[in-house]
């Protein structure tokens, strides 16, 4: 199966094995060596990855913001492409999203902000 990496993978919606959203493909990691075809190994998610994609003047500010806001600090979260179950409108990954670090920010916002507001 032919894949256009930028058009078909980058910025696509990622879902876990239940079909629940994990985020979008913010970055793609490729293993490169000079004498073998490069391989796409992981998808990256996170503010740090997103910040690096912007024009330079914005990068510093956004990286700082991401660092301050992200509960796990700066390191991006990686999902291995070998766990892809389905490549289509969304990319389905064979993991349990409820415990995945991809949802850490969502859980943080839920526990520290939303759950403290009555009626949530």
């Amino acid at each position: 199966m032919d894949i256009d990496v930028i058009r078909d993978l980058l910025d696509k919606q990622l879902v876990d094995r239940e079909g629940e959203p994990l985020g979008r493909v913010d970055g793609i990691v490729m293993a490169y060596s000079a004498d073998a075809p490069p391989r796409i190994t992981c998808f990256e998610l996170g503010a740090q990855t997103l910040a690096r994609r912007l024009p330079r003047p914005f990068q510093g500010a956004l990286a700082w913001l991401g660092h301050r806001l992200s509960p796990r600090g700066s390191s991006p979260y990686r999902l291995e492409v070998s766990r892809i179950i389905q490549l289509g409108r969304t990319i389905k990954i064979d993991i349990d999203g409820t415990r995945s670090a991809a949802r850490e920010t969502e859980r943080w916002v839920r526990d520290h902000i939303v759950a403290r507001i009555p009626g949530s």
Partner: peptide, 16 residues
Amino acid sequence: IEEIRARREGEEIVVE
């Protein structure tokens, strides 16, 4: 560089 063409081979995605 505007696009990267790859092929899916089993569990791997190989850049062509």
